[in-house]
Amino acid sequence: MRKRWPVLTRQGFKALLRQHRDALLVSLTHLLKHPVTTVLTLGAIAISLALPGVLYLLTTHVNAAFSGWDNRQMSVFLEPGSDTQAVSMVTEQIQALGSIARIETITPEQGKASLQASADLQTALATLEDNPLPTVLVVHPDVSLRSAAELESLAARIAALPGVDDLLLDQAWLEKVSATLQGFQRLSIVVAICFGALVILVIHIGLRIELLQRREEVTVTKLVGGSDLYMQRPFNYIAAMYGFLGASLALLLIKLIVWWLSPQLAALNELYGSHFQLRIPLRFAVTLIVATSFISLLSTSVSMKILLKQIRP
């Protein structure tokens, strides 16, 4: 009845600590008393995070794998059956066009060997009697060639050379790959947002049911002088724990999925000669845990504010 400013005295601080300890205890007992709800909620959060998480990690990593690639290089496919003489003639002619840093030659045997390294392709190759692969010249332009127009004009001139069957400008398909990857990355964010919203909704509905069941307790607590904050605290702890544990479980799931995908990733590495390893970056893990806990806490506290206002003695 006397008006007092909320000065935090030593005693007040101790009381606050006790209130928090009580709230923490209440929330822990709540989680343990309702193991099914707890596990289901954690599972829902973990799955909703793991799916977009894996998608995001995969696209980021594949993107990184390709970024080491010289995207200005072009693959020149010679006519099938070209002999060594024909190959060196074309090589010289390309060199003569200028602006060439170096040219690698991949013979049909080398091509077959590299493909055979991939277990999945081995069986496919075994069915082929002859080696159908053409000789490929990998042309690396030098630094003087920068613009796409210059690259394309060089490519056109190479393609016109006798003995050349086909030409693939890596830049073009790399750009396609990169655009596709970016698309997937955006998709993973959209999926994350949708799932996130779903989880928030589920938490809100869960809180509503919980509060309706405990309506009498909430009312009585209000009547004997409990503030909304006092009643909210245990729920805040529950939310933070859900966020933390759910995100940790999601990381575990992601790890599991990555492990399950590792043969496919290894095959990809062999095909493109890259050496990337799909690991969960620490920053990703920390961000996932912190952001999930924070969002869970924030949405719960907003939900509770709204719901507690509705319960009046």
């Binding site: 009498e216 607590t221 009547l223």
Partner: peptide, 24 residues
């Protein structure tokens, strides 16, 4: 009376004190 059915007599009576964070 409006006692909370899932708490014993002691805890029901203690509720107004718990709210203020009173010393055990």
């Amino acid at each position: 009376h409006r006692l909370l059915p899932d708490r014993n007599v002691y805890e029901n009576v203690a509720l107004p004190l718990r709210i203020t964070g009173a010393e055990p």
